[in-house]
Simulated scan of single mutants.
Amino acid sequence: MTEINQEHVWDMIEDINICMFITWDGSRQRARPMAHMSKPEEHAIYFFTDENGAKDDQLEKFPIVTLAYADQSQNDYVSITGTATVSNDRTKIEELWSPMMKSWWDGPQDPTLRLIKLVPEDAEAWDSPHDVVSTIKMAAAAVGLGKPDMGDSGKVRM
């Protein structure tokens, strides 16, 4: 069994490239898929955004954000809640820039490019078995032959 702790949560999200970035606009939640850059050594998760994005205004008023990660191939699921801020930190943007971002911005010097920094506060994770034997056990449980091992889950203070 794997203990669900901070380090394990960071490991789980490392290989999941896209998460659902969920904000509150004052009347309802808004979710959008976004690529993240996790930096556990900084206790931060970064996202590039456009200065004209609606989420930027939402974050100014309601900075608490939830990130939802899912890796169905590994049966790993993580939800992280934290406080997000938008900045124009050009040094950090330069550091985090990758050629993949050219699909949305001209380069790290693009004047519309901004950076969201999320500082995680807590997480919930489910690291379930992902091998054939576990699948067989779940199928057996479905027909009344015992309870399956559903893996490890837990809440973590980040």
Rank of each mutant, 00 (worst) to 15 (best):
M138W: 07
I4T: 11
N52W: 06
I13V: 08
E3P: 04
E42H: 13
E121D: 11
S87D: 11
N52Y: 14
M20N: 10
E124Q: 06
A70E: 14
T49G: 08
T66V: 10
V132Q: 15
N17L: 09
I93Y: 08
S79P: 10
Q74G: 11
E14H: 14
G151R: 13
Q74R: 15
D122N: 15
S98Q: 12
P33Y: 04
L145M: 12
L145H: 10
Q74A: 15
D89F: 00
I93H: 08
V9F: 06
Q109A: 15
L115Q: 01
D56S: 15
F47G: 02
W24R: 05
L113Q: 03
Q109P: 00
A44W: 02
N17C: 00
A70P: 04
G107A: 07
N52D: 15
G154H: 07
V9C: 11
L96G: 05
E124C: 01
E7M: 12
A35Q: 12
A70T: 07
T23Q: 01
D89G: 03
P120Q: 05
T85P: 02
A54K: 13
A139W: 12
T23I: 09
A68Y: 07
E3S: 10
I13N: 06
H8V: 14
S27R: 15
A44I: 09
T135D: 08
K61W: 04
M158S: 10
V156I: 05
I64W: 07
T49W: 03
H8W: 08
F47H: 03
P33A: 03
P148T: 03
F21E: 05
M100K: 14
F48S: 00
A141I: 11
P129W: 07
R30H: 14
E60A: 15
A35G: 13
M12I: 15
E95K: 13
Q29M: 12
K137H: 10
R114C: 12
I4Y: 07
E3C: 06
K137M: 07
D122F: 12
T135Q: 13
E3F: 10
V86I: 14
L145D: 01
K147R: 08
L115I: 00
T2I: 15
G26A: 06
A139D: 03
I16R: 02
I13P: 06
A125V: 03
D15I: 09
F48N: 02
S153I: 03
E41R: 03
S153T: 03
R157I: 15
L115M: 04
M34E: 06
E51W: 07
T135H: 13
I16L: 02
Q6R: 10
I4L: 14
I16F: 03
G82D: 00
V65N: 02
E51C: 09
A125F: 08
W10E: 02
T112N: 15
S38V: 13
A44S: 14
V119R: 12
E94F: 10
I16S: 05
A35D: 08
P33V: 00
N17R: 10
